[in-house]
Amino acid sequence: MSAGRKSRIGSLVRIVLILFAAFVMLVPIAWIFLAAFKTHVDVYQLKLFFTPTLGNFGTVFEAPFFLGVKLLNSTVVALVTVLLAIPVATMAAYSFSRFRLRGETAMLVAILATQFVPAVVIVLPFFVMFRDLGFLDTRVGLVLVNLAIVMPFAIWMIKGFIDGIPMDTEEAAMVDGSSRLQVIRNIVLPMAAPGILTAGIFCFIIAWNEFLFALILTNKHAVTLPIGLALFKAEEGDLWNLLSAAGIIIMVPMFILALVIRKYFVQGMTMGAVR
């Protein structure tokens, strides 16, 4: 009897701990959500109950903040980065997955390693070069640099998906007279499509949240959303209600995308080291 009681208390303790953890995870996010619907005055009074307003979401798009421009920049930069990276990464991933290449391990390790190089090391030469070429503060420049962080993830993630597709179908089609390129187009791409889409979403999130490159390489025209957060300062301090509204505009689309691919999130981040 006492053993049963003990295990019941144990499971209750566990549920309380789980709920507590969920609470801790959600509080900072929830606090931003609340603040985004508060007026400037309500923010300063720690209120849990207040009359919600949508005004902040209008204000952030008006002068002098113009969040719309940053939203457009972020969208264009992340989207173009992904559209360039994914086809290139898919081709390479197929080759790495299906063939033995000379120097294959060296190439794969180099690609893996570039992901671990601090972004601040990469950005210094780009700053100097972009200044000379007039690429500073342009979306083109930002896309180019973003490729550096997105490519390794994309290659490793898509390679993982293609590794999981059995080779029999491909071989059968080849025996029937299809060329390798036909096989890739008609068999591999349709089968790998969900994986490629997942990798695309994953890379979009990374490019969207990217901060250091945009901080250093843009200052006016090509500023992205995360850098735009720094705008909401006034003489009396940070404008928390507007910051929060901008925060929601940054994070909610990523929440939705992340939930779509949640099954593969871990695989993406660990580059297939943990499946």
Partner: peptide, 9 residues
């Protein structure tokens, strides 16, 4: 969710 949040945010 916290993981999809920009570190800057």
């Amino acid at each position: 969710l916290p993981f999809a949040m920009s570190p800057a945010l």
